[in-house]
Amino acid sequence: MPWKILIADDEVAIANVVARKLQNAGLEAIVTTDGQEAYERASAEPPDFIITDLQMPGMSGLELCQRLTTELDKPIPTILLTAKGFEIDGTSLAHLPILRVMAKPFSPSELLANVREALGIRTASPATRFARSGVTGS
């Protein structure tokens, strides 16, 4: 089973390109285009990793992460994408499983590298090795 990664971004073009990059690397990508939808999908079937935009109508990426962290048993490691990087203060990220904040525009390759690094830090599993070999092979 490949790692399952949930993507949340109201910019459909961005969500799609991130999904394509992950899929090319052998990961499974689930695309959602607002916070509420992402929250519902993640609650129903928790993914291994979340890549979310910060500013989305309805529910922000930060709220999404907060709610999932409170409601789920296991925190889901998350990368936050934002065009307003300088407006995030450290206190709002405290106690949240946000591994990294990446400023938009971002490099899909760099994002993938970050995702791989994060997954590699977690307990090694055949899926991790599969994902890694998949990426290096591509």
Binding site: I14, V17, K104, S109
Partner: peptide, 16 residues
Amino acid sequence: HELKAPLASLRAYTEM
């Protein structure tokens, strides 16, 4: 923010 959104797409799609 509004300018960065299309710019992010331009950057990502070009890189791909």
